[in-house]
Amino acid sequence: MIETARYRLLLGLLAAAAIILFVLSLTVGPAAIGFGESIAALFDSKEAGPLALIMQEIRLPRAILGLMIGATLGLSGAVLQGYLRNPLAEPALLGISATASLGAVLAIYTGFSLVFPLGLPLAALAGAVVAVIVVQAMAGMRGGALTIILAGVALSSLAAAMTSLALNLSPNPFAALEIMFWMLGSLTDRSMTHVWLAAPFMVVGWAMLASVGRSLDTLTLGRDAAASMGVDLRRVQLLAVLGTAASVGAATAVAGAIGFVGLVVPHLLRPFVGARPSRLLPASALGGACVLLAADILVRVIAPGKDLKLGVLTAIVGAPFFLWLVYRTRRNLL
């Protein structure tokens, strides 16, 4: 009982933090607008003036995407760690973000997404599916935790190289500069169009990922034990694969690949939820949203006007954490 109360308190705190960061994200930007003024402009009619336009068309979509993409990364990281029973699993390390980027890049720079806007998230989703299937195949062949991570590294490098190639071959000279966006991610000047394009895929992906929570609890006892207790492993696999691909694919299609959030957040929160995956999932989603919103606020505060990429910040925090994690778990891994 006490544990449940503590869990509810944790979720409440995380949700409150996410709301506070969401509001902060709305009030930070190059145009110096006062706090009260900016919140008021959020609810003005769009014809009211430039402030309403800035709040509703520039900052609101940015904050919404920060919240949703952060939740996507946190949730998918938690599911992947539970499903693959691998502490190092997360969308970026497994190459899912990089292949989703490649899919999105192909859709945008060939002009396909101009003709058919839904082609953008769909192409990113297709890219993500390829990565998840490769990782899945590696994990299935009695691959240890390291095998999966190595496959992810190979996949990431290949996808990154192909992305660079596609952008370098584009006749538009600006395309090559955009390699940075696709590798490190950014939410600068996203619009409501991006929200509407990505949100449905992310929500469907969340629903799929959330539905595997209970099965993941049973999976902690081992695959065979879980199967004997009536867990439909094929169904879990399908939901985890498609859920990750849909949500991470859509997130990457509009904001580029953002690393380490899905790795760090579940690890930080696991001690508070009693190592139960079904409880970790909602907590990780909220935690991921907090982390990404905070990172997106920081890029605007630390280096205003420099368009610092999100992946730079998440890697500064995430990469040392990853190394520490490898150090701590290497006895189990090797």
């Binding site: 945008i108 006749p171 000279p173 600006f174 395309a175 500069l177 955009e178 000047d189 409501m192």
Partner: peptide, 15 residues
Amino acid sequence: YAAPALAEQGYVHPA
């Protein structure tokens, strides 16, 4: 340029 790039996305932003 005939080929698209994100650099020109500012021109289609609703704002």
